[in-house]
Amino acid sequence: MIDFGPERLSRDYEWRLPLISVVFLMLTFFLITGTMQAAGPVKVDLPKGALDETRPAEAVTVYVGADGLVYMLDQVIEARFAPFMLRSYFMKEGHRSVQVKADKNADAETLIDLMEQMREINIEEIVILTEHAR
């Protein structure tokens, strides 16, 4: 009779521990570095940029799609009508900043029109969002 000695304890869970550690580390990384954003009403491919300035504390977000339409406050409108919407909104809410997420393939004329009309309704600050050029 061969004596194999005492039976070894099953340690089949051990190989999983490094995996769990790595997954937890990745989870922590994404939790810390990420910024959650609400999905916009339209997919906007932001223009590439290099400069980054301080973000305003509060701003209404206006989207300009590649088709030139303006998406704002759950409504889709043409650029020339956007200021009327903004005016009524600002009279109620009192904000003075607008954040524009304009597609890189949108007509620059649309953006200029929008900014010009925002200036006319006394919006003090306009913020244009860009994407970090890699």
Binding site: V23, M26, L27, F30, L31, T33, G34, T35, M36, Q37, L46, G49, L51, D52, E53, T54, R55, P56, Q99, M115, M118, R119, I123, E124, E125, I126, V127, I128, L129, T130, E131, H132
Partner: peptide, 20 residues
């Protein structure tokens, strides 16, 4: 992990401010 990887944008947006 998959949820946060998909929904996060890792600080890629920047801003240009204009005072009117």
């Amino acid at each position: 992990l998959i949820f946060f990887m998909l929904i996060n944008t890792i600080g890629s947006t920047q801003v240009l401010r204009f005072a009117t």
